[in-house]
Amino acid sequence: MLATGAIVAVNGLNPLSLLTLGIGGVLAMSSDKLLRIYAPNLTSKLSSKNETQELTTEIIPTPGEKCLAGVPPVVATSGEFRIYRQAELNRTTASLLANGAILIAGEDGSGKSVLAVAVVEKLQADGFMVAFIEPATPKQMLLEIAHQFDIPTEDLEGKSLTADKLKRTIAGFLEENTAFLVLDDAHCCDAKFRMWLKQLCKSGVPMLLLATDPPRKDVFINIPRIELKPLPEQAIREIMIQAAAERAIALKPSELSKLQERASGNPMLAARAVDEEYLGLDVESGDHRRYFDITPLILLIGIGFVIVRLIGRGTNDQALYIFGGIAAAVFMGLSRILYNLPRENQRIQ
């Protein structure tokens, strides 16, 4: 049957078509052989490139989507990072574009620097000039700002500009151009440098400051702030899965849950917990900060003193009545003092 079908197919073609078809087949076979013989590296590169393309076309589900068993919810290649604080990114960028200053506050490892890098990349992608600096001496930071903005650091005679002249030059450049300042770990900067930043804020220079527990003074008290909250459990789990994949270790769901408790929403602590598990270190608990609200306890104590005073009055017990009155007065005074203290001092660490 196959032979008959082949004969029928051949009979349907003229001799010229048959000749062309045969020559094309011979050339294809010979070119493939020649390529494998004389250019084996090229064929291996092509095959590896095709394999890479097949791997990179893998579907990455979002946190809200369900994943197959054994497949991590996030697959990222090396050198990439995922922004879990998209709302903060959009809010920060919008504030800067409105010629405003913004402060991002959060504990160490909460993702401030990652967020700052994302803001810088987004602004630079839109064609804006951005200077991203880290704490150093005031002169070094001024020179770094001038270098990133291509501002001359020498006068006409070739002498280096002093710190005061650099401040005036940079301030004049920022007044004439639309540019942004991004300063990481601003709480570590010199107080005089922060006062210079305060003057720039008053003149309308857009800037982004990132700090851990910034003091309520100088530039930090003038600009609005965004407090970075702990990441949700799903995000922390994804960070741990990615960190474990990079270290080629397999973590059970129970182990992930235990490590997740130690991280407490801190992405840096989440990655460190995986490192400690990889090294086989036995860590009892995380070093994140835990805050407890003692307001209900204070209210119960105050109510208890009032009840004692009422009991003393109802039973005609003068000693109990006086004790309840004194205790209630002392309690009201202490609670008022605690209420007027700064917010950081009201927290139990």
Rank of each mutant, 00 (worst) to 15 (best):
L42V: 11
L68G: 08
P40W: 09
Y84E: 09
E54Q: 14
T93V: 13
T57I: 00
S95L: 14
A118Y: 03
L42H: 07
L103S: 06
T62I: 03
F81C: 07
P15E: 07
G106E: 08
Q86D: 11
S110P: 01
C67K: 14
L103E: 07
I104D: 10
L97Q: 12
M29K: 15
P63C: 08
G111T: 05
A69F: 12
S17N: 06
I60W: 08
G12T: 10
A76G: 05
V119E: 01
F81D: 03
I23P: 02
T93N: 04
G22E: 03
E58M: 01
L68M: 10
L115N: 07
A105W: 01
G12W: 10
E80K: 13
Q53D: 13
S78A: 14
R85G: 04
T62V: 04
S95P: 06
L89Y: 02
G22T: 04
I102N: 04
V74H: 06
L42T: 12
T43E: 11
L27M: 15
L115G: 02
A69W: 09
S48Y: 11
P73N: 03
N99T: 05
A28S: 09
I60N: 15
S95I: 14
Q53I: 14
I104S: 01
T77K: 09
L89K: 06
P63T: 05
G70R: 05
S48N: 12
G22P: 01
L115D: 08
A76P: 01
P72A: 08
K49F: 15
L16P: 01
L96C: 04
T20Q: 11
T56Q: 13
T20D: 03
A94G: 05
A98H: 08
V114Y: 12
K66Y: 11
I59R: 08
A28R: 07
I23S: 06
S48E: 15
L55P: 00
K45N: 04
A76I: 15
E51H: 11
N90P: 00
G24K: 07
M29A: 15
L123W: 03
I23G: 04
K122F: 02
S48D: 13
A87K: 13
G12P: 00
E80I: 06
